[in-house]
Computed example of a mutant assay.
Amino acid sequence: MQVFIVAFMLAGCAAAGPQFRGLPATTVTVDGSTFDVRVRDNRAEAIRTNAEYAPRFGPIRARAGKAMALVSGCEVKEVRGDQAQAIGILKCGKRSRHVPMQPLALDCVPVRGTEVAQLGGSRIEISCDPAL
């Protein structure tokens, strides 16, 4: 029974809030934080989907705002919420309309000399450019 409860709770971790249910999510990573972003009218929701050790909302707020701006194409006036779920108030102007981002094809290569050994593997920076 406990396993069922834990599985049920984890399944709802990346679920959209009530105002954003049924909308497709665009996944964006900003400065190491990964968000599922949904946009409706002049509001956006960013749900952080990656694990981070003891994140404070200040840095997460800024990253969520950048993610919302990337997906919506609008200025983000305000971001409210917490480390897991943030809601942004958008200022899109009269002519701007939200158009869902299309997947972007990228050509990526590792950056020489950036490999860092870590527990269980290594980390390396990559440089990506739009594919032609």
Rank of each mutant, 00 (worst) to 15 (best):
M1G: 14
V3N: 11
I5K: 07
I5W: 04
I5Y: 06
A7C: 03
F8H: 10
M9N: 10
A11D: 01
A11S: 04
A11H: 00
G12K: 13
C13Q: 14
A14V: 01
A14W: 01
A16T: 01
P18N: 06
P18H: 06
Q19W: 02
F20Q: 02
F20C: 02
R21I: 03
G22Y: 02
L23T: 00
A25L: 05
T29A: 13
T29L: 10
T29D: 12
V30F: 12
V30N: 13
V30Y: 12
G32P: 08
G32L: 10
T34G: 05
D36G: 02
R38D: 05
R40W: 06
D41F: 02
D41I: 01
N42V: 01
N42H: 09
A44E: 00
E45P: 06
I47Q: 04
E52V: 13
Y53P: 01
A54K: 12
P55Y: 08
R56V: 07
F57G: 05
A64K: 00
K66M: 09
M68P: 09
S72W: 05
S72E: 08
G73Y: 06
E78F: 11
D82V: 00
Q83D: 12
Q85P: 00
A86M: 10
A86D: 07
I87A: 10
G88N: 04
C92V: 00
K94M: 15
R95D: 15
H98K: 01
V99C: 00
P100K: 04
M101C: 08
A105N: 07
D107E: 15
D107K: 04
V109A: 14
V109I: 07
V109R: 12
V111T: 11
R112A: 15
R112W: 06
G113H: 04
T114K: 06
T114P: 09
E115N: 07
E115R: 13
A117S: 09
L119Y: 10
G120A: 03
G121H: 08
I124L: 12
E125D: 15
E125S: 11
I126R: 10
S127C: 08
C128V: 05
D129I: 10
D129T: 13
P130K: 12
P130N: 13
P130E: 14
L132M: 14
L132Q: 14
